[in-house]
Amino acid sequence: MSQRIISLAALTVLELSPPDMIEVAARAGYSHVGLRTEPATLEEHHFPLLRDAELRRQTLARLRDTGIKVLDIEILRLKPDTRVADFAVHLAAGAEFGAGELLVAGNDPDEQRMTERFAELCDLAAPYGIHPHLEFMPWTDCKRFTDAQRVVENAGRENGCVLIDAFHFDRSGSRLEQIASLSPSRMRYAQLCDVIGPRPDDMAEILRQARQERRFPGEGDCDLVGLLRALPPSLPLSLEIPTQRLLEQGVSALQRAQMAIDHTRRVLERL
């Protein structure tokens, strides 16, 4: 098994502050973390990295002390009223942390406008050395792999990428053979988890599962070996595995992060 970057995503241990998350990642054997500069929902608890200079200082210090690197920042949304210039503060923070990747969601029913905004964001991100990744999710306006591929390719920017998350890949009905049509240069990392059971008919239930109840790799029904073989070799993996049931049972963030990476390594040994 070749060595590859394995990153701890914020959603896996969302209760932790960024410095504590970095400490947990180091103790569990990760090389990288993903940081949230913008919350995914209005309801989730958020640590305001952009507004809190002291938190930013502590985060940078913990990165230095542990040797952990930042893989990506998240999550910026392209909406009908988005002003892409407003994202500059996130990109500046991402560059300060050393992130090379940015997670982007498409929440605009006008695909042409979404494509133009994505191109504009790529242009804004380029001087920072950051690659925006459009993540398809079945409840957004960019629902499937083919939707994200079309927007990114039509945007026509070298640093524009598609983010494959194993959960969304499964729940959107995307297919492994479709991946071969995307240039490997358009994929700089992927998000890994497992999914259990058939795809629900209710989108609210899909959303609940995505944010609260995923499974560790190898515990569910996804063909993760097939997915990993379809992706570029040694692609960095971000482990995004919220497990609300374990949190409620008192399983610590360190234990959950350790379970996630241990399960992932066992899957990787099967490649």
Rank of each mutant, 00 (worst) to 15 (best):
T59A: 02
A26D: 10
R36T: 05
R64I: 00
T37A: 03
L78V: 10
E15K: 15
A40Q: 11
P39A: 05
L14N: 15
L16V: 01
G29E: 08
A25V: 00
S31H: 01
E23K: 05
A40P: 00
R62N: 00
K79C: 07
P19I: 03
L71Q: 15
A28M: 05
L78D: 07
A28N: 09
Q58A: 14
P80V: 02
V24D: 02
D72T: 09
T59E: 01
G67C: 07
E74A: 08
V70Q: 08
T41I: 01
E54Q: 15
T59D: 01
H45G: 11
H32G: 08
A26T: 03
I75E: 08
R27T: 09
K79N: 06
P48C: 03
G67Y: 09
V24W: 00
R36W: 13
L76K: 09
I73V: 14
T37F: 08
A28R: 07
T41E: 05
A61T: 12
V24T: 12
R57C: 00
S17R: 13
H45T: 12
T66L: 10
I73Q: 04
R51D: 15
E43K: 10
H32K: 12
L50M: 04
I75V: 15
R56P: 02
D52A: 06
T66F: 06
H32F: 11
R27F: 01
S17C: 03
E15D: 13
T66Y: 12
E74K: 05
L16R: 12
H46G: 07
K69F: 01
R51P: 00
R27L: 04
